[in-house]
């Protein structure tokens, strides 16, 4: 396990200890304060260059990473893949070599292939790589901002400061993740983050949308979604990923909504304190009803705002830090 992401690549949450995750959350708390100032900028990464490479479309993750880099005073090189030489058939390796030749300190990368960020880490060992989503594998900063948001909400309710509570608010916390688990890198990162901090995670999905093997995951599949809603403190709704062919895994969208959608009717089963989350973009009316997404229990916009401080923390720690020795 890794106890700190300082000076390392951030590729997956699976290898991070609770200490490493808490360090990112606590650092992000400091950046929340920076984001509330009139001048929302600190010189922490002044003179550093962050390249943002999005081989897959994205609104919030890309904007959020670029905002984060700019608020740290880094220069941002943003590659628009659609109008780049990638379209002429340039390989990932050559694209990275070209960008590296311009002199960069970090790459933020999203790619449709699982493991792409890891591979880039091998090409340019002197550059810090942050995975912004790779295929069906991981989306580490999303997992981090989700646990950050949960801690923030729970700490506010307890009238405490998030950084003072450490991981204590996660002990025994009941998290239910519902939807397209099979195609979801968000689910994989969320599960890693929640379990590392001591929460209990259960998943709900039609059989076809569960991964082939759940054995190495410390989660339970629930038999009855409706009952599980009454159990959960946190409900993480996933997007039905039609671009990954989810459509052929369910008989029809209407049937999916009927059985696993968080409809207004179903949301009534939730306990009064439950938190509803969604990583966006939402298919309103498919996996979540509009009324539920806009209800006070939903913290979806807060997830988006927390994306910036979490990504500032990820960039700051990976780029400026010096790596510690690995333990166990």
């Amino acid at each position: 396990m890794i106890n700190s992401i300082r000076g390392r690549n951030l590729l997956t949450l699976n290898e991070l200890s609770d200490t490493a995750i808490l360090e990112v959350l606590d650092t992000a708390e400091l950046f929340v304060e920076v984001n509330q100032r009139t001048i929302k900028k600190v010189p922490a990464l002044k003179g550093r260059v962050v390249a943002s490479l999005f081989f897959e479309e994205s609104t919030r993750t890309r904007l959020s990473f670029e905002t984060a880099a700019k608020r740290l005073s880094a220069d941002v090189l943003s590659l628009a893949v659609a109008s780049s030489s990638v379209k002429k058939g340039e390989s990932l390796r050559d694209t990275i070599a070209t960008i590296d030749a311009l002199g960069i300190d970090a790459v933020v990368m999203r790619h449709q292939s699982s493991g792409a960020a890891h591979q880039v880490g091998g090409y340019v060992p002197h550059v810090r790589v942050i995975n912004a989503g790779d295929g069906l594998h991981q989306h580490p900063t999303q997992g981090l901002l989700d646990v950050f948001t949960v801690r923030q909400v729970l700490a506010e309710r307890a009238h405490a400061k998030g950084s003072e509570t450490g991981k204590e608010l996660f002990t025994g916390l009941r998290v239910l993740i519902v939807g397209d688990i099979r195609h979801s890198r968000v689910a994989r990162s969320d599960i890693a983050a929640y379990t590392a901090l001591g929460a209990e995670v259960r998943v709900a999905a039609p059989g076809t949308l569960l991964p082939a093997s759940l054995e190495e995951w410390s989660v339970r599949v629930v038999d009855d979604f409706d009952e599980a809603l009454e159990w959960a403190d946190v409900v993480g709704v996933l997007r039905l990923q039609r671009e990954r062919g989810t459509g052929s895994f369910v008989p029809s969208l209407a049937e999916f909504t009927e059985t696993f959608g968080l409809t207004s009717e179903r949301a009534r089963r939730l306990r009064p304190h439950s938190i509803i989350m969604h990583p966006g973009p939402m298919n309103r009316g498919v996996e979540i009803d509009s009324a539920v997404a806009d209800s006070p229990a939903a913290v979806i916009e807060r997830q988006v705002s927390n994306g910036v401080p979490i990504r500032m923390a990820a960039l700051y720690l990976t780029v400026t830090g010096t790596p510690e020795e690995k333990t166990s």
Binding site: D26, E29, L30, P43, A44, E164, T320
Partner: peptide, 22 residues
């Protein structure tokens, strides 16, 4: 006032998460 992000030697210093500017 927290000056962690303004230091020229930030990388060498441990910084404290509760050290917020107010």
């Amino acid at each position: 006032l927290d000056v962690s992000f303004y230091r020229d030697d930030a990388a060498q210093r441990p910084f404290v998460a509760s050290a917020v500017s107010r």
